[in-house]
Structure formats: C-alpha cells, structure tokens
Design a protein around this nucleic acid. Structure first.
Lengths: 337, 337
DNA sequence: GTTTAGCAGTCAAGAGAAAAGAGTGCTAAA
DNA sequence: TTTAGCACTCTTTTCTCTTGACTGCTAAAC
C-alpha cells in the first residue's frame, strides 16, 4: 500500500498529465499543486513511485508520465466519483427526459449526451439477443406478397423485418402464422427457434411450404443478427494531441470502423457498474493508446445494451466515471411510459 | 482546345500522379510512358500546360502536379469509362444478386461492394421523402398501449414507427385509423400530411384525442425525418499518403462525422449519371483535399437514394467511374422480387 | 519551325554540429 | 527527513552544408 503523501503526489501527477498531455516535472508539481515540500523531495518520491511501477519516464532527463499500473491505481483508488457540475446535471436531466417511443432512441440520446459532456467519442450497442424473451409476435400483410413480422420482447425492444413471397398470401395464412408463432414463442428467449420447433411449425403449416419457408429463414436471420453500433463524436478525438501521431489516428479509425471489434469491446466483463479498461488490458494491440469505459444501460433490471467512451489513455476518468454514474442512475430510474 | 500531344502529356502526368502521389518530372514521363520525344520537349509542353492552368508546381525546381482545372479536364475528357476487369464484373454481379427483402439492404450491399473494389471510402443515403408516394398505411396493435405504424411507399421503402399511448387502444380504433389514413393518404406524397388533412383526421376521430394526437405527432416525425447515412471503409482512406497530414485526416473525419454535411454533399446536382466534384468545387473548405463521385441508385426510374465515393483529389477517377457505371446499370436492371 | 543536348540555377530534404533548455539524480548540509 | 546546489543527460531547435532532383533557357541540330 502507498503512503498518503505518495498517493497525493501520484494523483497530482496524473491529474496534471491528464490536463497537459506533457511529462510532469517535479518543479511543475510544486508550483501548481499546493504540496508543502520542495521539488527535491518530490523528486525522491517520484523515483520511488517509478521503482514501484506507478510511473514511467520517456527518457532520463524528462518528467514522469503515468504507467498502466499508475492509471489502474488512479482509477481504482483515487478517482473522484462526483466530478459533475450542477449545470451538467441539469443538461443531462433535460436530455434524458425527452419522451421516446422506441427504446433504442433513449440509448442514442444517452450516448450523444455522454459525448457532449465529456468531449470524448462515445459508442453504444443494443442488448444481446440471448437475454431477451419474446412477448408477442405479429405478422402484418403489406400489399399481397409481403409480410412484416414484428417481434416484441420483454425489454421493450421491437424488432421488425420484411418477408417477401413469390405467391399471394391470404389473410387466413397470416392468422395461422400469428396463432402458431405466438403460441409457441411467447415467453421464450429470442433464440428459441431451434430445430424441433422449426419442424413443428413446418408440420402445422405443411399445406404451404412456399409461405412458411421464407418466414422461417427471415426469422432466423433477425434473431441471429448482431446488434447495431452507434457512434457519437468521432471527430472530437481528433482534436486531442495524441492524434498527431498517424499511428494513433489510424488505430482509432480502424477500431471504430470494425464492427466486430466494437461489439467485442463493449460486450465483455460487467462485474462492476462502471468498467474501465486501460490501454491493452483487453489484449488488443490496437487499444494500446486508448482506454475504454463502459456501463450497462439497465432499466428495471433489464439489459438494454451497453454504452461506452473510447478515449486516450490519459482521459479524464473522474469526469467520465462521474457522468456515467449519473446517466446510468437516471436511465435506470426513468419512469415507464 | 488542347492539341493532341498536350492531351497525351496531361493524361500521362495525371495518371502518373494518381498512382505515385509525387510531383511528376519530365524525365519520369519519358521513361515510363512511351512518348517519342526527349525530356526537354516535355518540359516545354509542361511549361505551356502550366501557363494554360492545367498544372501546378509545388516549388520552382519540382515536378508538376495537376491543378483543379487539370483534374476537371481529365474527368471531362480523358477518363476511361471501361476500366473494369472481368473479375471485378463477376464479383459485383455476384454481390448484387444477393436476394434482399428490404430495399435499403440492396443500397448497403452496393455501397460496400463499391468500397471493396475501389479501395476508397463509400457513403450512401436513402431517397428523399419528397419523392416518394404512400402506397399503404398499416397500424398494428402491439400489447394494449402501443401501435406500430407501417408506411409502404411506391419506391418499395418501408418506414415503420412505434407510437405509445397513455390509455388502452381498442381494435376498433385501430381499424378506424387504418381506414382513415389509407383513404386519405394512398397515392399522396409522403409529405402530404398538411394542416387541412390534420384537421380532417382530428374531426373524424374526435371521440378520442388521446389516440389521434400521438399518432399525428409520430407520423409527422417519421415523414420529416432525414435519411440515414451509411458509411463503408473509412479506414481505407487512412492508408493513403495524403492522410499523413493531420489537417487532411481531421477534415476527413469531420466530414464523415457530420451528418448534415454528408446529406448536403450527396443530395445536390444530378444533371449527369455520374457526378464528380473535385476539391472544393462544392464550396466547402473541408473538401479542399478531397473529391466526391456520386450516382443515384435508380430502379425502374424510381429514386432509391444516392451512393458515392469520397477520396483524395488524386483518386483513380477512371476506375471509380467505370465501377459506378457498372453498379448503377446492374441496380437499375435488377429484376423485381 | 520544331526538337534536343547541355548546363546553370533553384529548391527541398537530409546530415551533422552546436547551442539552449528542461529535468533529473546525487551529495552534502540543514 | 528535507532541501539547496550542481553536474549530467537527453531532447529540441537552429544553422549550415551537401546532395540530388528538376526546371528553364540557349544554342545547335534536324
């Protein structure tokens, strides 16, 4: 465990580095943070903090920058979790009070608000299919050869899809579809459509394979479809000094542009309310210079997706975590509409 | 008008610059392009082409690069419109043969194929609402207090939206909504919902303002909603040498990240099949280093949106235009499903 | 009249060298 | 345990010099 003064100094160094992006010198620390000692004392402490692995030095005669371990300690022990102003609280509240019809719109609003307040790039994905149960299925005839299938789940997420046919569909067939699908699927998880069920439905409707086959195909497609990725404020990151490096900028664009990577980053590890991954803690080389902070959008204990920030390793963790905590709480409290 | 040899030289210079991204010298031209004269002759011609405004020189003793006017001449007069291989034709054909249910999926497939073949970043937007007519409107009850409204237009685009209510909705009310909306809106343009119509509907359903008001509100929202922007291969651009400049990279991300800008760029000027905007011809400073090439996704003379490429000013116009022509033709020919 | 060889002139880019500046680490004294 | 002081280190900036790639021009050749 670190002594109190070491903690103070480590905190001051990281705070300073977060705001300046420059290696922090002993002199600067004494000047700008009210530490009651001389720069020489700081230097001694810094040397010890470096030996213990909390700090790094780009070269012999430069100031210190936080190491991965330093950031980790900062996030776990030193972060302020109420670094949010009254004005920001008001802004967030007003944004989240917007009346939405589709639940995904609320995720989008939360994501863009998060980016606006933190000035970092934010991302979101919808809930994973595996955790949703089917509440109702409805088939609607559009024209004569087209059906829309609507699936309502217990999270409030509504999935719809179009199915086209080579022959006309009768109202009676639509009714049968509605009856069978609701009977068999209500209350089941979204991924419930397995082989036995498929065979049952086939046998029930065997009078018209031309109808049931496209339906099953499209249904399977919707159920297995991966979630959408929402992105907000990608350009904000390009104002950061670290983006002067071509490699950093390229890795960033690469990350954001690869959907599978984004899904992977946002979909793992939710031991805590707020999850922080510093640098390549996630075993992804492209993340070397970035950190990711995520939380689950929950409402009445139901999972409505994941919202996160992707920013530089030296991101303002206190601000990000405070704002996320607040947004998360507000989303969870939001009254049903 | 330019003499034949000047044209040849200009073409050679631009081709060379497109592939190397380096200023082109008189010597390089003689070596790599079979021109039957010495470098001194080329130098004389180059000097004249520069005087006429087709070429620029970064500094006194450097090779030449094309000017905006040079690119314009190249695109208008020198471009090869069949710069596409058999293999590419096969690949495009197989991609576009994918059976899709929602028409937007076809736009997405075309957009990603375009990016794959050209190795540039491609973008697409859906059709503007103003050009679509309503073919059918359908309200579907989901649960007891939620409706889904489905609007089918004559382009085959299907728009759906959720409407939530504070009180239960009866089947009878749904029927009335279906009857009134279809009666009044069938065949009308999507933007047909004006004040008189709104008042008519209100009076027809005045027995329950709590029902009709949310419906009208949401309907208006859908109809006035701006189109989605699809993006493919943003990271491909970051491999280009011009992206070593921070300013270029930043402008690019800024463009892509600003939806209004993208809509604006893709939504104007369709005098020709394929439209080319070189640099800031579109009066947008951020476009200074980029060119945009677009075409309308048309099917049976109906507008299904716009697809485009955004790349460096020195993009391979011949390839891009050839591939676009082919994709455009294939999309238009695609048989109805 | 057009083309070409030849050469002087220009400029960018790269390689050192030198100087300036920012910080550290260590020592010895407080 | 803290601090002043100073030597030392390493980056950054600035200059200068050199190299090399081109051009433009002139005068001769075709």
């Amino acid at each position: 465990m670190l002594e109190e003064r070491k903690k103070q100094i480590l905190q001051a160094i990281i705070d300073e580095y977060i705001s300046t992006a420059e290696p922090v010198s002993s002199g600067a620390l004494v000047n700008r943070h009210g530490l009651n000692c001389s720069s020489a004392t700081i230097r001694n402490e810094m040397a010890e903090l470096e030996k213990a692995g909390y700090l790094d030095k780009p070269h012999t005669s430069s100031g210190r920058i936080p190491s991965a371990q330093g950031y980790r300690f900062y996030v776990d022990e030193l972060v302020k979790e109420d670094d949010i102003s009254l004005e920001e609280i008001r802004y967030i509240t007003s944004k989240l009070e917007t009346r939405v019809n589709a639940i995904e719109d609320l995720t989008k609003i939360a994501t863009s608000t998060l980016s606006e307040i933190t000035h970092y790039t934010s991302v979101a994905i919808g809930p994973q299919n595996g955790f949703q149960n089917i509440e109702e299925v409805k088939f609607v005839l559009l024209g004569t050869r087209m059906l829309m299938a609507v699936i309502l789940t217990d999270t409030g997420i509504i999935k719809e899809t179009i199915i086209k046919f080579d022959e006309d569909i009768t109202e009676e067939q639509v009714n049968t579809l509605n009856f069978i699908f609701n009977n068999k699927l209500r209350g089941k998880p979204l991924e419930a459509i397995d082989k036995p069920l498929e065979e049952y439905i086939f046998s029930e409707m065997n009078y018209s394979l031309a109808v049931i086959k496209p339906v099953m195909e499209q249904f399977n497609k919707v159920v297995n479809e991966e979630s959408k990725v929402y992105l907000e404020g990608a350009n904000k990151s390009f104002e950061l000094p670290e983006f002067k490096s071509l490699e950093v900028a390229r890795n960033f664009v690469n990350l954001l542009d690869t959907k599978e990577m984004m899904l992977d980053l946002l979909n793992t590890g939710f031991a805590k309310d707020i999850n922080v991954y510093i640098g390549d803690e996630k075993e992804n080389k492209k993340l070397k210079d970035f950190s990711i902070v995520t939380f689950k959008h929950r409402y009445q204990n139901k999972d409505l997706g994941t919202i996160g920030i992707i920013g530089p390793k030296r991101m303002d963790y206190s601000k990000v975590i405070s704002v996320m905590k607040y947004i998360s709480k507000k989303l969870n409290e939001k009254e049903s509409e």
